[in-house]
Design a protein around this nucleic acid. Structure first.
Lengths: 124, 124
DNA sequence: TATATTACTATACTGTTGTATAGTTTCTGT
DNA sequence: ACAGAAACTATACAACAGTATAGTAATATA
């Protein structure tokens, strides 16, 4: 009995871990905007910087490195003046589509729900 | 041209917002463990506390309130000795299933990928 | 009266995430 | 020689998420 409870619990932990992994990979203020910016096409550092409103160089650099380490983004250096660095979403990065879609669909429904609640009772 | 770029950008923002909403609702150290604990059945405060390893009362209280405000969890007070409070996942909370599944599937694939990379080059 | 249980709240602290601002390197046009 | 651009890095700081520890209210039992 004790034993089976523990099994259930550790099974649950095993199920939760990959969910957390995926969540952590996407969470934070800047990862999604950066990924979506690159989804529309390869970009240089300064181009992403312009497109992702409000991000500092430091954060952009850090987040791009993070995404690169996880294999979602590839960094390509062009030997030109001035050194041009292009970032591209990898095919692997694009496998995130179903995840982002699922989040988006639920998030949309949630917004609609909150809206209709507010219509029923505007003062909250 | 300028105009169409701006449109693209704001459209993109509109798409990103619900994704972020959903992400924020699930992110943090404790929300997923709590949700999954309640998925297996209604629980009292102290039962969740025992099941979700390492959480403090303060965090549990805060997160449960947060989940309640977002309509994912319902708080039911039983008038008994000592006061018993039961938390249940709402039907609405259960609509998160496809989201959590999508995260879990991707996270699992990611783990496998990292494992097979490690096998190719164990020293990193 | 003292102690125990449940479901919390209060206060103070730490650690991580993100911000602000400036500096570095390499190159090139003037 | 100097200014300027690209792609960063360094340092210091602020804000927020989370932790540690203790305390509270209601009720019951010894």
């Amino acid at each position: 009995m004790e034993e089976s409870l523990k099994l259930d619990h550790s099974e649950c932990q095993n199920k939760i871990r990959p969910v957390r992994d995926a969540l952590e990979l996407l969470s934070g203020k800047w990862k999604l905007p950066i990924i979506l910016s690159l989804w529309l096409g390869d970009k240089r550092f300064s181009e992403v910087s312009k497109e992702v409103n409000g991000i500092t160089d430091r954060m952009l650099s850090k987040e791009l490195r993070d995404l690169e380490i996880n294999g979602l983004v590839k960094r390509v250096i062009h030997d030109s003046y001035p050194v041009v660095v292009e970032y591209t979403l990898t095919d692997y990065g694009k496998t995130l589509k179903p995840v982002i879609d699922a989040l988006g669909i639920w998030g949309m429904a949630h917004r609609n729900r909150l809206m209709s609640e507010w219509k029923k009772n505007p003062t909250g």
